[in-house]
Every structure is written in structure tokens, then in C-alpha cells.
Write a protein that binds this DNA or RNA. Structure first.
Lengths: 124, 124
DNA sequence: CGGCTGTATCGACAGACGTCGATACAAGAC
DNA sequence: GTCTTGTATCGACGTCTGTCGATACAGCCG
């Protein structure tokens, strides 16, 4: 059992360092796993992309219940999961509630998964 | 095993654009959710980063059981989940089994989560 | 060969998850 | 005020998941 001493990635650096460069610490891994868990459902992934694709980057819940085969309470539940994971924010405007993505959260995960060989980086 | 040299994965993953640009279809969402589900566990996240951080981008299972508080069968189970999600590959060399990350899989997810502005920011 | 070490599979269990219908809450229309 | 529409919460159900100990499989070594 050779044990190679590795630098451990703390919470503060978890936001900006690809995981292929530094091993994740327990706390950072737990935090990131919570976000990935929110993404680990087809309905939530589609919800997120649907919200992001709407004009202005935000969508009313009334726009989100239609495209899915699940009930309205289920959609509401999934939106809550995304919100509690910090991936989307919500705002009530009059009768309707609008959801929008939190770009910094997506960027954090994107950076974490970025590989040294390239993609995930801006080509321009 | 020259896995660090070529950026050949850019073209292969050209199928995927950032989700903020285009709404995901049901099939794509289901496929991607399977990968994110593999990342949605603290132990698996640490396993993945640990494997990627080792010299040569690969690690023996014997190196991976030590840093965790869970049993060896549990580690084996998590490695199987990562492997079936296409995030890591495994190869037996003699007595030991070595795991290494599949860069194109990480790159695909990274690209999907990439935001137009690249880095995170908060809209006021 | 037999024994030993590293890894994977099996079976079982508690807890978490996704879904639903029913219902409560919020805000505008009348 | 009441009614109606949009959204969230509740309680329950079946299924999936993470974990374990026991055990089977795969290679080395003597």
C-alpha cells in the first residue's frame, strides 16, 4: 500500500480548482455532492435547462409544468431541491413565481469537472 | 495508457452544448442524469478526485480504500458505479486493479454546465 | 499443490428519494 | 367579502441507494 501524500482541496478552493488537480477534502466533497445530487434527476436537469433557455434566463412556474408528465406538486418539489442546492433562485412577482439559474453555481461545478486537456474552457 | 497527451476529446463531445443555450431533451436528460447521479455522493467524488490526482492519472484500489471510513466492499461498489457511469475505466495488472478517469466524460459534463460568462457572477 | 492477498459479488438492512392526491397558502378578479 | 388561479406543503406509498458482513473469485508466492 504505497501512500502518496496529496494536497487536500478545502472548501475555499473548491470553487475554482479542477478536481483532477487536487484531491477533494471531506467537507468540500459533501458540499459538492449536494449540488450534484440536485442535478442527478432527469426532470431537474430538464427544468434547469428550460429555465436557462427562457428569455431573460428566467421562467415562470406556469411555463415549467406543461412540458413534463409529472404532477404540479412534483415540479414544485424539484424546484425546491434545485433552490436549496443553490442552483436556482426564485422571486415572486404578483401571482407568479419566477425561477432563474445561478450562473456562479453552474460555473463552480463546470470548473471542478474541467479537464487539463481542454474542453470546458472558452475556445475564443 | 498515454492518457495525458492528446486533447482528442473535444470533437467527440461536440454533441453537447451548454444547457444554458439549449433545452435538454428527455433522452439526453436521462443519460446525463445517470452520470450526475454517479457524482452525487461524497465518497465517489473523493474517489474520482483521488484517482485523478495520482501519478499518471490512475490509482490502485489498494490506494483508495485507506483514506475512507467505509469498508472495502463499499469502495468496490462505488468504483463500480463510477465505472458504469463511464466516468472511470479499470484495468487489472497482475494482482492489482487500477482505475483512471475518463477525461472526455468529465469534459462533457463540464461543457454542459459552462456558463456564457465563463466565471461565476451575480446579477444584481 | 496450498495458502495468502487484493478485489468483486451477494444478501440484507435502514434510510433517502420520486411520485402522487389532497390540501393549504398567496394574490388578483369580481 | 367570495371566487378563481397559481404555487407550495403535507402525508403516504413504492422504489432506489449506501452500507455492512460474509463469501467468492483472481493472482502471486512458497
Amino acid at each position: 500500500m504505497s501512500n502518496q501524500s496529496l494536497p487536500v482541496l478545502g472548501q475555499d478552493t473548491a470553487c475554482c480548482t479542477p478536481m483532477v488537480r487536487q484531491a477533494l477534502g471531506e467537507d468540500a466533497a459533501a458540499e459538492l455532492a449536494r449540488m450534484f445530487k440536485a442535478l442527478a434527476d432527469p426532470v431537474r436537469l430538464r427544468l434547469l435547462s428550460l429555465i436557462a433557455s427562457y428569455d431573460g434566463g428566467e421562467a415562470c412556474v406556469c411555463d415549467l409544468t406543461g412540458p413534463f408528465d409529472v404532477s404540479q406538486p412534483t415540479i414544485s418539489h424539484h424546484l425546491k431541491v434545485l433552490r436549496e442546492a443553490g442552483l436556482v433562485g426564485s422571486e415572486r412577482r404578483g401571482t407568479w413565481v419566477y425561477y432563474r439559474v445561478v450562473p456562479s453555481a453552474l460555473a463552480q461545478l463546470s470548473t471542478l469537472l474541467r479537464t487539463p486537456s481542454g474542453r470546458g474552457e472558452d475556445p475564443a
